[in-house]
Computed example of a mutant assay.
Amino acid sequence: MKYLILMQVDPEVLERLTDEQQRRIGDGHAAFTAATKERGEFIATQALADPSRSKVVRATGGQPEVTDGPFVESKEFMGGFYLVDVEDEARAVELAKQIPDAMIPGLALELRPVMFSDLGDG
């Protein structure tokens, strides 16, 4: 079963991290990626740019309109994700607990089962 592990980021929390904490997070993500690849659970990961660089396309008057941002009323945003293929939800939760963000107050991981997937053929 595929799960998307969404990394919820609070920029204020990230700004307060020490250089050592930032290094441990980077090393932890590298170790997590390597371990899930080795077990055949890894599908993909992506880090996303700050929402200030976002564009939103939505229908206005029956036509698509492009605007800046999502600019939602929240200081947190999706900073990236892991896509994993695991036996069940319990394993997805177990993996999420291994991501370094899970140990930092103010950051969070959201798990969502994938309902449909088309990864293409390369």
Rank of each mutant, 00 (worst) to 15 (best):
K2N: 13
K2A: 02
Y3C: 08
L4R: 08
L4K: 13
L6P: 08
M7A: 12
M7S: 15
Q8M: 15
P11F: 03
E12N: 06
E12D: 11
L14C: 07
E15S: 06
R16E: 10
T18D: 01
R23C: 03
R23E: 10
R23Q: 04
D27C: 07
D27M: 14
H29P: 14
H29A: 08
A30R: 00
A30V: 11
A35Y: 12
K37Q: 14
F42G: 03
I43A: 09
I43D: 07
A44W: 00
A44F: 02
Q46H: 09
A47E: 13
L48A: 02
A49N: 08
A49H: 08
D50V: 04
D50N: 15
P51T: 04
P51I: 04
P51F: 03
P51V: 03
S52L: 12
R53K: 11
S54Y: 09
V56E: 15
R58Y: 00
T60R: 15
G61A: 12
G62D: 04
Q63Y: 02
P64H: 15
P64Y: 10
V66R: 08
F71H: 11
E76W: 10
F77G: 01
G79V: 13
F81A: 11
Y82A: 09
Y82L: 08
V84P: 01
D85V: 01
E87N: 11
E87C: 06
A90I: 13
E94W: 09
L95V: 00
K97T: 11
K97P: 07
K97N: 14
Q98C: 14
Q98G: 03
Q98V: 05
P100A: 05
P100N: 09
P105A: 02
P105D: 00
A108W: 07
E110W: 00
E110F: 02
L111W: 08
R112S: 12
V114N: 01
M115V: 05
M115T: 15
F116P: 06
D118C: 08
G120P: 07
G122H: 13
G122I: 12
